[in-house]
Design a binder for these strands. Structure first.
Lengths: 243, 243
DNA sequence: TGATGGGGAACTGTATACAAAGTGAGGTTG
DNA sequence: CAACCTCACTTTGTATACAGTTCCCCATCA
């Protein structure tokens, strides 16, 4: 567990009122997204319970939900941990999102009512402004809002729900694998261009736009294979053979 | 709850040994698929606990999982019920499955090793045989196995998991909306044709094949709007106005 | 007849106790 | 010195008790 995060949560909980399992899900999800809870962080039930002022029953339910959202790993008889998707899974998640969000965008083109379009454009503008003043958390917030709005207004609710899940998962891996040299994963004009094509009702153009956007985003990540414990083992093994 | 199902489960549980939450998930899922637990059936925690010989804790966990699989509806302070997807959702589920399974098939074409292909062909043959002798439960079993194998061997595990979910959901709605006049939802040659194209490595042909198959399947259902309680209300309301 | 409201049964929400499993530090042995 | 074993401690799994909510029958009243 992360101690700074503890105190923050404790303060927030004291100020607020009752806490339900869904509240815990949202707070943990957000903490993972913003990397206040880095991958592999242990999340013991009692500790979480103390932090939120509830018993293990509630925490357990929240952890089960978070596991079904692919945010935490819950294995029998072991403490739940913040999930760290592999590089392979990261690629696959992006590919799945391209497929689903592309289709949603294609279906949505020309069908969004003026009010939603206006909201989308506002969010796109706010994202640019946040980027220009260097406020990355706000920028991410507005970017996520755009994609969540698309998912929410998908004519196909099943695809919409799948997209919501995929947006969350890609956000997590972006935070995880972002090149350290990059201050932001902002892609200038990508969102405005997409909104333009959605407004003009060109479904296939919108689909292509989403595809490009997600390919560009994936390209901003550092997805080169890393030396991990397993690789280390095999290397040491080979060294031993050679000696 | 369904009384016949109760007794059946009770007998099975007595014969077997320990029961975990995952066992309950599987047994309930199967019972829903085979319509031994029809839509809207109430699933009280204590009753399920008695049936399986475990306490509410375990049942609750199982119900939460089933809810995340879209098999049951779990709302606060109300008994869990077997979900009854609407006609609208049924159409959307089929559409989503066409998108995902089409992509999986396209990626899988030409990449399946001989062993898996052999298993798939065996299942297709067994399905035909089951159909010819009128054994619908066995037919469904083999058909499901084919689609589960495709999901399982998807090179993209994320899409594979999504497909597993969608196969389950379409199976449930097929059981729900199957035209009563039809003894079976068997589509002659659809599966062998798909396997042929997968074997030949023609991705786009495989995708088209999956699309056709799922469109045909959807066409076998009776998805005309029904008079439900809400419609009844509006009709009665209008009658009252006219009088 | 039909609407309304009380009240008890049924059910879920939460906390807690105990059992079982895993984890890790530190000593022991080859 | 490293591998291994042990034992105490930590953490999860399951059952159960009690509190709070909802559901539904039925008596009451217009």
């Amino acid at each position: 567990m992360n101690n700074a995060w503890h105190k923050e949560m404790l303060a927030e909980v004291k100020a607020g009122g009752r806490i339900s399992d869904q509240d815990i899900v949202e707070k943990v999800r957000r903490a993972v997204l913003t990397q206040r809870l880095p991958p592999d962080t242990k999340l013991p039930e009692v500790t979480l319970g103390e932090v939120f002022g509830v018993s293990r029953s509630v925490v357990r339910k929240a952890l089960t939900r978070l596991a079904s959202e692919h945010v935490v790993d819950q294995r029998p008889n072991q403490v739940a941990r913040v999930r760290a998707p592999s590089i392979e899974e990261t690629r696959e998640t992006f590919e799945a999102r391209r497929l689903v969000e592309g289709e949603v965008a294609a279906q949505l083109a020309g069908r969004l009512d003026a009010e939603v379009m206006a909201t989308l454009e506002t969010q796109a503008r706010l994202e640019t402004e946040a980027y220009e003043r260097g406020d990355e958390p706000a920028r991410i917030e507005h970017s996520l809002t755009i994609h969540h709005l698309l998912a929410e207004h998908s004519p196909n609710r099943v695809l919409g729900a799948m997209l919501t899940d995929l947006v969350l998962r890609t956000s997590i891996v972006i935070a995880l694998y972002k090149r350290p040299s990059l201050a932001s994963c902002y892609l200038e004009n990508d969102h405005p261009r997409l909104l333009d094509r959605l407004g003009k009702g060109d479904g296939e153009a919108a689909r292509a736009c989403v595809n490009d956007h997600l390919h560009s985003l994936e390209a901003l990540l550092d997805l080169r294979p890393r030396e991990n414990s397993i690789d280390l083992m095999s290397i040491l093994g080979r060294t031993a053979e050679q000696s």
